[in-house]
Nucleic acid binder design. Structure first.
Lengths: 343, 343
DNA sequence: ATTAAAAATTTACGCGCGTAAAGTATTTTG
DNA sequence: CAAAATACTTTACGCGCGTAAATTTTTAAT
């Protein structure tokens, strides 16, 4: 508990009796020194409390231990949750996560990449906006910094893609809905910004075809990331529509469903499974709020934990590989049906 | 469009015809050089695309342009939104925001401060966990780095506090509820972690007293930040309780209200103003989801924009002041009543 | 115990920029 | 227009650490 003030690594070398280059090696990677040396350093560290200067450290290093994480929208609880999970994994693996959100704006997305570049990151975990993304700068960036996409894929960009298997998950919930009532119509945005939306639309059409049902698309107009608002607005129209061929609505994602449920409630339309209900609604993603909608939302749960873990591991494996791997890896995780009260 | 590759400031000095020390001054603060020089540099910048090395820049600077932002929980849309707004302001004012979330964990909160310290930040905007916060390390930190609290106050800590006027806002909504129906009971957590909760409880008691009504507290047990879950669980109990002296519930915050509404729906209890409704519920904060609850939530809107702006300005004023100010500044913003359908 | 291999130390240099001091050029003031 | 004030250039040093090469010490293997 002498807690003498240590100014730099030189001084710490003096008091700890370890040479500075060895200390440098230790701070870069603790297990790269002999176990006995590691123990000595750690003992000294407890008595003297020294942290290497972050800036001096990274200035000359070919590669830092920084891992950038970029998500489309930090204010979206879905992304907040998955980003948080990834951060945990990155940290445990001895790296330093830096989290940025693109607020749904393509310019900001590119700017985030630029800002990360000056951190000399070892790699990036990147959930792009999707269709709205500015591909040119992103592709250029991915050639310089190992980048792994997650959640939303940009074909051929980066080291690979970790996401969910929309084909499986949408097939699963369509099947469930058909078994328990009328075949669903598909409620989505006409021009979605997220590539998953296109995959889900296709998966819906395919699943309906396989089950021998006539598909029905309901496409909300609207731009941006205010999905609840769009779901609400179009939802008001849909619940009043007498010509709808079905009483069951499958929403492309939970946020649309949340808006839809709100509209249904506002219109006095009862949603759910009970005899007094006239409509069923399901979503996709198991959004953190889907447990508290009225009624609670039947949906597909994406395996946050698995996606986060696999993303972190895949990227770091590539980062740590001595020779660059030139194959692009794609891993899709199956979704799980979460049966609640809305369908 | 020569876009020759510039390696460092030395090279950029050569091609731009400006001396390196002047460039250094410019990058530190663009308006600190003569306007004509600034123009010349910016012209060269367009042709050659050079960015000073972030790490080398900050290594020897007494003070960086980094501003740390810490919020209790990034997954909470309320904090996500206010953090995002603050980030925008910080950026516009020529600083570099670094956003961190404490995930509701006091150890992580302290660790976030430690991590920020190594960034040599010019200042910190800090929304502490509150009662759960580890005051010792926080106070020590605030003595070394200019820190301004927002959202939640720790008495006497830091440069000051920017928040909302719970006394005014709770008084406002209590008054509204009393004018339009039965006086409200107050629904809250028994041991809230957020200091605002105590202020709101006190404000409720005061407002009820002034209006000559008997206050009634409903206190949910539970720890942590899963407010919706707690609101739901205790809500199930409350809606079944026949001994409740009132049909009106004022929730300490919107997240509790969201859980409460979900519980009421589940129990078949109609909430709202209509003749078929048997209960009224109000919240506090104007949470981003409160527009989509069923029914939509009557609440108090905190002035996100004003709080964010004032926080950023106050901190940066202090950071830029040559002599340290030793007075602690406290600014509270009034809330605004948002009348929706739940009360 | 001897030898080879692995790890730590010593020495030395450089990274890119901040910053200070002294001198020179430019702008402002009266 | 001259003098004073301001801004810029030149020169020089240092920040704290990464990293390479040569040497010495420690460990593992025979």
């Amino acid at each position: 508990m002498t807690t003498k003030k240590i100014k730099n690594m030189e001084e710490f070398a003096a008091v700890s009796g370890i040479s500075r280059p060895t200390l440098s090696k230790f701070f870069n990677d603790p297990v790269s020194v002999r176990a006995s040396t590691k123990a000595r350093i750690e003992a000294a560290l407890e008595r003297y409390d020294f942290k290497p200067n972050l800036y001096a450290m990274n200035q000359n290093r070919r590669l830092t231990k920084n891992i950038g994480i970029i998500v489309p929208h930090l204010a979206d609880p879905f992304f907040a949750k998955i980003a948080r999970t990834i951060e945990d994994h990155i940290q445990v693996m001895g790296y330093r996560p830096v989290l940025l959100g693109s607020q749904g704006r393509p310019e900001l997305e590119v700017q985030n990449l630029e800002n990360l570049r000056s951190l000399k990151p070892a790699g990036i975990l990147f959930a792009p906006l999707g269709r709205a993304s500015n591909r040119g700068p992103i592709e250029a960036f991915c050639k310089e910094v190992p980048t792994l996409l997650f959640d939303a894929n940009l074909e051929g960009v980066g080291e690979g893609f970790i996401g969910s298997n929309n084909d499986q998950s949408v097939g699963l919930i369509v099947d469930y809905l058909c078994r328990t009532g009328e075949p669903p119509a598909f409620f989505e945005m006409k021009s979605p910004s997220n590539p998953n939306a296109y995959k889900r639309r296709a998966a819906y059409l395919k699943a309906m075809g396989q089950l021998g049902h006539q598909p029905h698309l309901i496409q909300a107009i609207g731009d941006g990331w205010e999905f609840e608002e769009i779901g609400f607005r179009e939802g008001m129209r849909v619940v009043a529509d007498k010509t709808l061929p079905t009483d069951t609505i499958l929403c492309s994602n939970d946020r649309l469903a949340i808006g839809f449920l709100s509209a249904a409630f506002e219109s006095g339309r009862r949603i759910g499974l009970g005899p007094d209900c006239s409509m069923r609604v399901a979503g996709h993603d198991d959004h953190p709020f889907s447990r508290f909608t009225c009624p609670t939302l039947t949906t597909i749960s994406q395996d946050y934990e698995a996606i986060a873990k696999k993303s972190a591991e895949t990227l770091l494996t590539r980062v740590e590989a001595e020779s660059p791997v030139d194959s692009r890896e794609e891993v899709l995780f199956d979704g799980r049906l979460v049966m609640r009260h809305s369908a």
